[in-house]
């Protein structure tokens, strides 16, 4: 599924574009979550093997033929946990954004000049 790998890379580039070109902090966080989705798509698509099925054994895919019929379970397991972490990290960033707005009254990064000299 090279197509989905390409799609993932395009999403990563678009997300980084958003993070670099926008000045609103919420928009930067949205760009981050788009990058997240892109990376997950790339990782899962690398684990895919042509004409194979999900790594879950049942009547259709027995123990004996599993080796030749299922896709790689390791990227799935990795991405599964990465998605949950992504939510927690996004929530943490949003909490910082809310706090920042409470203290500064603005979400524009050009209004935050403490580190500028």
């Amino acid at each position: 599924m090279t197509l989905i790998t390409i799609l993932g890379f395009i999403l990563i580039v678009i997300g980084i574009w958003g993070m670099l070109s926008q000045s609103n902090i919420i928009k930067i966080i949205i760009g981050f979550s788009i990058v997240d989705t892109g990376i997950h798509l790339v990782m899962v698509s690398i684990g895919y093997l042509k004409d194979r099925t999900a790594p879950i054994l049942d009547e259709a895919v027995g123990k004996a033929e599993a080796l030749a019929r299922v896709v790689d379970p390791v990227p799935s397991a990795l991405v599964l946990t990465a998605i949950v972490i992504g939510l927690a990290v996004t929530a943490l960033m949003l909490a910082y954004a809310v706090k920042l707005h409470e203290m500064k009254g603005s979400l524009d990064i050009h209004d935050l000049k403490e580190l500028k000299w």
Partner: peptide, 23 residues
């Protein structure tokens, strides 16, 4: 499509559900 139903479930529930709500 990529034969990863576990990931599909997680992404549908978290990515489009909870993340949007938290935002």
């Amino acid at each position: 499509v990529l034969a990863a139903p576990d990931v599909a479930m997680t992404e549908a529930a978290i990515g489009s559900g909870l993340t949007t709500i938290v935002f």
